[in-house]
Simulated scan of single mutants.
Amino acid sequence: MQEQADYLIIGHGIAGVTLGWELRRRGLRVVVLDEHQPNSATRVAAGLINPVAGKRFALAWRIDDLLPAAQQFYQALEAEFGRRFFYEMPILKLFSSVREQNDVLSRSADQPWGDYVADPALGLPNVPGLQHPFGGLQLKHGGWVDTTALLDALCTQGREQGWLRTETFVPELLVPDELGVSYGRELRARYVVFCEGATVVHNPWFSWLPVTPNQGEVLDVEAPELPTGYVLNRGAYVVPLGNGQVRVGATYRWPPFELQPTAEARAELTQRLHELTTVPFAVVGQRVGVRPTVRDRKPLLGKHPVHPALVVFNGLGSKGVLLAPRLAQVLADALEFEKELWPEVNIIRYQALYTAAASATASPA
């Protein structure tokens, strides 16, 4: 007899974690399949939440909607597990040049960032060893999420409660029909949601989506003299992990690449840290992961054009810890109550790519 579930989720990175939690919170039966990978993108990432980012120094997309949902999600998990995951702290954005300094400060008179940026007239706090020849700004309401601790806690819970299964998804076992999906002879679900990250490029149903894997590397560094109450950002981020350790990242490398740490990334990140601080430090670890990036830099949510029981939740890129909690709510509402997805993230915007891929497959050789 087949086990019955409402949702089968493939992947347990930040997308699968947030969606699974949201669905279980609503009383729905969820089964998650995940091939545990110590260097998954979510585990390698520093988990930054940055309300103002990019070369244009603009407010993050939909920040007033996304940030409260993210804060509520991590606070709820902290209450559930009795431990801390989200570390809210100021981000010191240090300018890289006189031109950047002038451009940003000239915009500050119009207060385009609301309450997310401290008054530039206050200057930067006194941080021993910090190098900032061009000045900078202090960003508010940001911080970082301990994604490794969060995943570990939920993985332990999932195995104990039976909703998480550490196994490799086999596409050939999945059979969609008008009422849902069957996975082998053992499981039946109303929907399967693919939260596979960069490996979606190999997905038989969603490989037409414009996802490009992007490799990122980070360093784990011992630097006991660096401040513990700030995230630093100039060319690289420096996140205080506690116990005298920080994480420094991240690099961006487009295919082709090999999934292993490189000497080039180590040298690049070490140099960036030297440019940020004069305090002594020692590199004690280096890790590499692969992000799913999208052509228009917006996530990918929605049903397959032909098989509505097949759903994708992907393309979170380097901002997953900020984006995922609210988007999990948006996707759950769409699937359970037929609410409209946000147009910026709905995969229907790439319908032409699916049509072209389907035509190419159907054409004779």
Rank of each mutant, 00 (worst) to 15 (best):
N243D: 12
G197P: 09
A324T: 01
I10H: 05
S207M: 07
R56F: 05
L331M: 11
H202G: 13
R247T: 10
A334S: 10
W21M: 04
Q215D: 00
W254C: 05
V31N: 07
P171H: 07
A58M: 09
R247V: 05
T18C: 10
W208V: 10
G114S: 05
V32A: 01
P343W: 04
R287M: 12
P133D: 14
E275P: 04
V294P: 11
D220E: 14
Q161R: 14
A41S: 12
N243M: 01
V201G: 13
E275A: 15
V221Q: 02
G123C: 11
Y230M: 04
L341A: 09
V44C: 06
G216W: 07
L174N: 07
Y183T: 09
H12F: 15
P210A: 00
P292F: 13
T262S: 15
A70Q: 07
T277A: 01
V288L: 10
L77V: 05
A365N: 00
P343C: 05
D64N: 00
W21G: 04
Q71Y: 13
H304W: 08
L66A: 02
L164V: 10
V44R: 06
V294Q: 08
L19P: 01
L327M: 10
M89T: 00
T361I: 07
P299A: 15
Q131P: 00
L48R: 14
K93A: 04
W208E: 00
G315D: 12
Q329V: 11
V294S: 08
V239H: 08
L77G: 12
T228A: 12
V284I: 14
V288S: 13
Q2Y: 06
F85N: 08
S106C: 12
P240H: 04
L139G: 07
V117S: 09
E340R: 12
V238E: 05
Q131N: 00
G162P: 09
G216F: 06
N102Y: 09
P128S: 11
Q2F: 04
R83H: 07
S106Y: 13
F337H: 12
W61R: 06
L301E: 04
Y74H: 12
H274E: 07
P204E: 15
T148D: 14
F313T: 11
Q101P: 01
L92H: 02
L8T: 04
R266C: 06
A60D: 03
F313A: 12
F86S: 01
L335G: 10
L327W: 15
V200R: 00
T18P: 00
T199M: 14
D146N: 15
W163T: 10
L219I: 10
P90T: 08
A328H: 06
Q157L: 07
L23S: 00
R247Y: 06
Q71P: 02
L23D: 02
K140F: 05
L8A: 05
P51T: 07
